[in-house]
Amino acid sequence: MKPAPVAYRRPESLDEALADLAELGDRARPLAGGQSLVPLLALRLAQPEVLVGLERVAELRGADLDGDRLEIRAMTREAELERSAALPPLLGAALGHVGHFQIRSRGTVGGSLAHMDPAAEWPALALLLDATLTVASARRGRRRLPAASFILGPLTTALEPDELLEAVTMARPDGRFGFAEVERRSGDFALVGAGCHRGRVVVFAAGPRPQRLPGVEAFLRDGGAPGPELQRRAHAEIEARDDLHASAAYRRQVGARLVDQVVAAAS
């Protein structure tokens, strides 16, 4: 389990990083905190010719958590967010489920979003909070994508090979919320998880990508409350997959129960 030979570039600015990606295209992979990419390199499941290390790109660091609109730049580490007194409780609750604290020391918000593991918390949060993702490339400049357009499927996003995720922005989540996961062990990827905030409901780790439940949201708008009917609607709506750890049937049942829990917590 040792990475294959690879070259390394260490751009000092965003322009330099984008120029590297424009030049190299899909021969390169940007490297953020490495908590997902380095194991794939070690298993030789990813074998880029060049890694573009982003650790020196100042424009990608830091987060503005104080205003009504939050901006988290891509290389912000999860551990930095956890230490911030301004971190909204919803993000804090979700962060507690991201691996173990040693992973959060290195793991970045942008890295997680760009990697798009279906069971990861950040894509689910982005969808739940209707976040906007700012994406930059040397040739085409910037584009801003709603989370729903950025997230395409397992390990797949709208990012082109020459693009970098620059930042994620969202309205400050305030008020009541619910966020819950069932995991086999503390710190594991969820078997299934759910979140609810301001009438939006998201299930994740169940299917190929985090999923909003419009039927459940409509039910809530119409005055529906937690209970068997809400669970029935959630159960019918959740897209679920089988894997080694749980069946689709398990994920639908438990997902529907978690939806019930998070809706209750948020209302």
Partner: peptide, 29 residues
């Protein structure tokens, strides 16, 4: 394990605990 799960390779990097198997040496520059 060399995949960031077992914790045996944990070291402190600028005072924070990290998996040294999940960090390239060049990233520790």
């Amino acid at each position: 394990c060399e995949q960031g799960v077992c914790g045996a390779c944990t070291v402190l990097c600028d005072g924070e605990a990290v998996r040294s198997c999940l960090m390239l040496a060049v990233q520790a520059d």
